[in-house]
Measured scan of single mutants.
Amino acid sequence: YTAFGDLEVFLHGLGLEHMTDLLKERDITLRHLLTMREDEFTKNGITSKDQQKILAALKELQ
Results as ranks from 00 to 15, higher is better:
1 Y>V: 10
1 Y>K: 12
2 T>N: 08
2 T>W: 03
2 T>L: 07
3 A>K: 14
4 F>P: 14
4 F>T: 14
5 G>I: 05
5 G>T: 12
5 G>N: 10
6 D>S: 09
6 D>Q: 06
8 E>G: 08
8 E>Q: 09
9 V>S: 15
9 V>Q: 15
9 V>E: 15
10 F>Q: 03
10 F>E: 02
10 F>D: 05
10 F>R: 02
11 L>F: 06
12 H>E: 14
12 H>W: 06
12 H>S: 15
12 H>C: 11
13 G>D: 13
14 L>G: 04
14 L>N: 09
15 G>C: 02
16 L>S: 01
16 L>A: 04
16 L>G: 01
16 L>I: 05
17 E>Y: 08
17 E>T: 14
21 D>E: 14
21 D>Y: 05
21 D>V: 08
22 L>K: 14
23 L>C: 11
26 R>H: 06
26 R>D: 01
26 R>L: 00
26 R>N: 09
27 D>C: 06
28 I>C: 02
29 T>I: 01
31 R>S: 08
32 H>T: 11
33 L>G: 00
34 L>K: 12
34 L>H: 10
36 M>Q: 01
36 M>L: 04
36 M>H: 00
37 R>N: 11
37 R>V: 05
37 R>F: 00
38 E>W: 00
38 E>S: 11
38 E>Y: 02
39 D>G: 08
39 D>C: 06
40 E>C: 03
40 E>G: 04
41 F>Y: 10
42 T>M: 14
42 T>L: 10
44 N>D: 06
44 N>F: 13
45 G>P: 00
45 G>F: 00
46 I>M: 04
47 T>N: 11
49 K>C: 11
49 K>I: 07
50 D>H: 04
50 D>E: 11
50 D>A: 05
51 Q>L: 04
51 Q>P: 02
51 Q>Y: 14
52 Q>L: 08
52 Q>K: 13
52 Q>A: 12
53 K>M: 06
54 I>T: 05
54 I>D: 07
54 I>V: 08
55 L>R: 13
55 L>I: 10
55 L>N: 14
56 A>Q: 11
58 L>D: 12
58 L>C: 11
59 K>M: 10
59 K>H: 06
59 K>N: 08
60 E>Q: 14
60 E>F: 10
61 L>M: 15
62 Q>Y: 06
